[in-house]
Write a protein that binds this DNA or RNA. Structure first.
Lengths: 269, 269
DNA sequence: CGCCTTCTTGAGGGTTCTCAAAGTGGGTGG
DNA sequence: CCACCCACTTTGAGAACCCTCAAGAAGGCG
């Protein structure tokens, strides 16, 4: 059972047109798998053999620049995508070119574990920043789940967590103002980065553009910009280049009515 | 493998204060289990033993009037809820009393299969109409999943379908007008009722109030009312008491950019 | 220096909300 | 059997939030 602390933080640096990462491929690769494992073991009990199998997951790695579709909408895949470095988004494409991002994925996240039981999907996955992705064959994951009931349960549980976040986003989109939505999202990402060992809840790197954030929050880039300025002026949220800073986390959480229960960061019995 | 057609349609009749159903408890109970099974077998291959186990699922039945919380937000449960008759909704409660419904459930739906791996949830479940619910112990479902790998996969897959619908609702809430959202939802419900054998895609009973529909669509009841009138005047959507009528399904689907892929009604290989 | 992406600002318009009140219909009690 | 009550639907008017269109500013890169 790995009770080691967070793996070293693989920070993505954006240097314009080129792609550059702060860590070596091997380090990042290992760190991401360990983060993934630690997310699973946070919520599920896995024995050493299961853990070993998960850390040794095979798969080829692809490196993409920002704004590329990693999985096109409607594509049938035979692999699942794990983010190794960078930030990826699951999205739904609308007819008029509008795009809604339905999930954000940071290193250690499996973007589409749900594609294992359902390879024919409607969504797409795009790189929001320069990204390194590990593609793990469905066959391997299915095999693992078939062989180990705890792993099957852990995978199912991970899908449930994903759905829990989707639900929360629905209620945010349906019933909250732009301001509250933004605050809520930033609280969520803060906890997720912290849990992944990639920063703290009050300071983490989320190097995505305002237009992309707007696609997450169901806003236009213009209005998102104004909303961010509002929160900044109130001293609740600052963005310094790629770095998000939340000076007073409790205050922002209160404003946005952020209750972390839905992230299921507490261990399930 | 049950290839019988749809079970007889258990229609809920609303008779004011009292609770009345068109079918007997036993019929409805059996029909709901068979609908649930047929939803699973639509997407997963299960052998006869697995099917038999699923149709014989135990559980006590509760009968509730409309507007009651069946599961309170944050409650820890040790059972999953299957809708036998009526319509239920999963919801997220906000501080100011506002409520966002994040999922609609019709007979044969398991509202919270995801509570099996994650009993400690943030959501609640309410009865939107008079409702008959079957509460199935988690222990039984967990046991079933542990014993049969195909059932475990089918459960996981059902959770994925739930998540797929959540994603679609996110993009509807984030990027579509009230009109399009309403049209899209009605197309979705039409297919789901049809698939469950409870009507056709162009005519089905959804006896929920406009205020509840507004809570689904992230609108106020007032604006929903006006939006419905708009679609009615265009001849695209009519509501006659509990009965939703879609005179020209393709036209409404086109207007709302409805693509049923996300419902995963096609059999997965 | 010039190009490209991203961020920022302005002005006007439209969708949706809020508040308020009236209309409708079924159920119930006198 | 009628009057009342309640939940639900409908209508109106004004305001708020967010969008659209357009253009300018800032910063990295060739």
């Amino acid at each position: 059972m790995p009770d080691d602390p967070a793996p070293p933080s693989p920070i993505v640096r954006r240097t314009g047109r080129g792609i550059a990462f702060a860590s070596t491929p091997d380090e990042a690769h290992k760190a991401a798998l360990e983060t993934f494992l630690s997310r699973l073991t946070l919520r599920s009990s896995l024995d050493e053999m299961d853990c070993a199998a998960l850390v040794a997951l095979p798969g080829d790695e692809i490196v993409t620049a920002a704004h590329r579709d990693i999985v096109r909408p409607g594509q049938v895949t035979d692999y699942a995508c794990m983010v190794v470095e960078g930030v990826a988004g699951r999205f739904d494409q609308l007819g008029d070119g509008k795009r809604q991002i339905t999930a954000l994925h940071i290193p250690g996240d499996m973007c589409d574990l749900h594609s294992v039981p359902v390879p024919h999907t409607g969504w797409g996955i795009e790189s929001l920043t320069d990204t390194r992705i590990k593609r793990i064959p469905h066959a391997v994951l299915r095999d693992l789940a078939a062989r180990s009931q705890p792993i099957a349960m852990a995978f199912w549980r991970d899908t449930v967590v994903d759905g829990s976040i989707l639900s929360k986003w629905i209620s945010a989109l349906g019933r909250r103002s732009a301001r509250d939505r933004l605050g809520h999202l930033m609280c969520e990402m803060g906890l997720r980065f912290e849990q992944a060992g990639l920063g703290t809840r009050t300071r983490f790197d989320l190097p995505i553009t305002q237009a992309q954030l707007a696609d997450v929050l169901g806003l236009t880039a213009v209005h998102l910009n104004r909303t961010m300025q509002g929160l900044r002026q109130e001293g609740l949220l600052a963005k310094d280049g790629p770095t998000v800073v939340i000076p007073d986390f409790p205050a922002l959480a209160k404003l946005a009515e952020f209750d972390p229960t839905y992230l299921l960061l507490e261990r399930q019995r």
